[in-house]
């Protein structure tokens, strides 16, 4: 059964095709309004996420399909100690496609092995979040008109930020991109991502300073320093405010910079930046919904 746990589960040509379909959805939403009629999408979320869940549900409804959901995981069968394998086996009988978020890394790998319908990973701990990446690269392609030859700055929590890891994995498929990793020392990229960059032979460097990197950037990907990724409160409090993007810091940025953020933000991007034409993070959520529509259709064999 075809599932998408990591962005690596999709070939480059499939990703390009998904972006083309998403562009067509943008031009022609009517054409897709009944594509998933009589199909059911189940969302199983073991940790809270309003926007990803709603994005998937909205995507399925826009395709004419239906949605079933588990309530909060605290009151669902997970709280009774049911294994992931059992849960997905059962839900495979109720839905045509499953979307899962889980706080434990690798949970969707287990789920995808047991599911008898396609399964999409909607985020597993600090590991992968492939559909966020699909949203990110479509936003980059639409705003920069290319996915090659860009200088991409990734800023904030690069250690636990799963969106960053997935985005790097995806962008490494496109040639001539340069990467600047902007983070405090405590939240640098994990070893396996550093290896992936080295192995790909791309140009990349690390810095603790957002200001010095700014003038070079074509894309700035901001991330939230997430409280739930820390083992202790003191570390979180010390690091959460280190990288805040405001109008002042943007003064040295290129006029066609694209600022992305997986959202939700806490305070890492000042609200004053929202009106700047370079801010693309709300538009990114629309791109995400359209890419999820395209992915649901791909996995259901509709496109």
């Amino acid at each position: 059964m075809r599932s998408v746990v990591s962005i690596l589960d999709l070939s480059t040509s499939e990703i390009n095709e998904l972006m083309n379909v998403a562009d067509d959805i943008e031009r022609n939403p009517e054409f897709y309004r009944s594509k998933c009629k009589h199909k059911i999408l189940a969302t199983i979320f073991y940790e809270p996420s309003t926007r990803t869940r709603l994005s998937f549900e909205s995507a399925m409804l826009s395709l004419g399909g239906s949605v079933i959901s588990t309530p909060d995981s605290k009151i669902s069968s997970a709280a009774k100690g049911e294994s992931i394998s059992d849960t997905v086996r059962v839900i495979s009988n109720y839905a045509d496609i499953i979307v899962m978020r889980h706080p434990k890394e690798g949970a969707p790998v287990v789920a995808a092995m047991k599911a008898t319908v396609p399964l999409i990973n909607a985020g597993d701990g600090g590991h992968f979040h492939p559909t966020q990446t699909l949203a990110d690269i479509l936003t980059i392609r639409r705003t920069k008109k290319t996915l090659s030859g860009l200088t991409i700055g990734l800023c904030g929590d690069l250690m636990f930020g799963r969106t960053v890891h997935s985005l790097i994995e995806a962008m490494l498929r496109y040639p001539d991109n340069k990467y600047i990793m902007i983070s405090p020392n405590e939240l640098k990229l994990p070893e396996y991502m550093r290896e992936a960059l080295d192995k790909a032979g791309v140009s990349w460097r690390e810095t603790e300073s957002l200001e010095t990197a700014m003038p070079e950037l074509d894309v700035l990907y901001m991330t939230r320093v997430q409280k739930e990724r820390f083992f202790n409160e003191e570390d979180y409090v010390r690091l959460k405010d280190v990288y805040i993007l405001d109008r002042d810091k943007l003064k040295t940025a290129k006029s066609d910079l694209a600022i992305l953020h997986p959202l939700p933000r806490v305070n890492e991007i000042s609200v004053a930046v929202d009106d700047d034409p370079r801010a693309q993070y709300f538009y990114q959520t629309l791109c995400g919904k359209q890419m999820r529509m395209a992915l649901i259709m791909l996995l259901l064999g509709i496109i």
Binding site: S83, I84, S85, K104, E105, G106, A107, V109, V110, G125, H127, Y192
Partner: peptide
């Protein structure tokens, strides 16, 4: 999930590096 087998995949034969099949660590 205690009943899961601990599975590791070889990713670098030269350096003898294995990575968890679930979480990639």
């Amino acid at each position: 999930e205690q009943e899961l087998p601990h599975v590791f995949k070889l990713i670098d034969r030269e350096k003898q590096i294995y990575r968890c099949a679930y979480c990639d660590v």
